[in-house]
Amino acid sequence: MHRLPVETVTTRLNHAIDPSLHIWGWEITLYLFLGGLVAGLLILTAALELTRRQRPTSAALQWMPLVALGLLSAGMGTLFLDLEFKLHVYRFYLAFRPHSPMSWGAWILLLVYPAGLLLALGSLPETTLRRVPLLGRLALRIAAWSQQNRSLVLWTTIAVGAGLGVYTGLLLGTLTARIQWNSAVLGPLFLTSGLSTGAAFLLLCKLDAVERALLLRWDLAAILVELLLIAAMLLGFASGGASAQLAGAALLGGPWTAAFWSLVVVTGLLVPLAMELLELRRHLPLVALTPALVLVGGLALRAILLAAGQDSGYRLLP
C-alpha cells in the first residue's frame, strides 16, 4: 500500500489560511525592507565616521540618522497597518516576551530612536541645532555629550543597528513552521541585505569622494557576502531532507523561481555587482541606476521570501 495519500479532502477553508497561507502582504514586506534599510543606514553612517575618525562633513550624512528614523517610523507605520486590532498596538509595550522575536523587535525599534537621535545630535552642525526651537539648549547639551562620548555613541548605534538588521531576518527565521524560513542563513542574509540597501541609499545622496569610495567597497563586499549566503541557503535546501527540498522548490523550479532569480539575483545582485566593479576599476562616473537596482533587489528579496515562505507549511508534507 502506498505511503502517500493519493487523494486528500479537507473541509478547512479558513480565509487567508486555506488553501495556502497568506497572512502577511505588502505591509510586512515594506516593514522588513525599511527595517533592514534603516539598520544599514545607521551602521554605515556610524562606520564611516569611525573609519574616517572625523565627524561627517556632507549634509547628507549629518542628516542621515534623522532620515533613518523617519524611514523607521514609516516602517512601523506599515507594521501598524498590518495589525488586525490596531487599538491594541500598545500591548507590544506592556510585555516583553523573551521567546518572541516580534517582542524583541518591538523593543529594539524603541531603542533605535534614542540611539539615532544621539548620533544625529552629535553629527549636525551647532548652527542647525541652535535653530531648534525651545529645545535648542537641551539639544546642544546632548550634542556636546554625544561628541564627547563619540565612540560609545557610534558603537551603540552599530550594535542597535545590527540588532535591528538581524531581527528582521530572525523574525522569519524563527518561524520554523514555515519550512522555507527554517534556515539559519536568514538572519545574516537580511542583515547583509540591509547593509547593502543602506549603502545603496547613501550612494544616492550627495557625498564626498572618500565617503563614496568607501561605501562602494563595502557595498561590493556586502553583495558578495549576500550571494554567498543565498548560495548557502539554496544548497541547504537542495541537499537537505524532503522538507528542505520542498522548501527550496519554490525558488528552485517553483512558482517564485523566475521572480527570485531575475529580480533578486540578477537585477539586485549580479548587475549591481558588475556595475560597481566597473565603476571602481575604470573610475566610471557613478550612475544612480546601480543603487536603485540594489534597492529593488532588497525589496524583492523580502517580498519573495515572505510570500514563498508563508506558502511552505507542513501541510505540504505527507
Binding site: A95, F96, R97, P98, H99, P101, W104, L170, G173, T174, L175, T176, N182, S183, A184, V185, L186, G187, G236, G240, A244
Partner: peptide, 24 residues
C-alpha cells in the same frame, strides 16, 4: 540547517530570568 527557533529559544532563555520579573 539547524532549527533556528531552537537556537533562539536557547539564547533568549538566558534573558528569561531577568525579564520574567520585569514583564510580570
Amino acid at each position: 540547517m539547524p532549527l533556528t527557533r531552537r537556537d533562539f529559544l536557547k539564547i533568549s532563555s538566558a534573558a528569561v530570568g531577568a525579564t520574567a520579573l520585569a514583564s510580570g
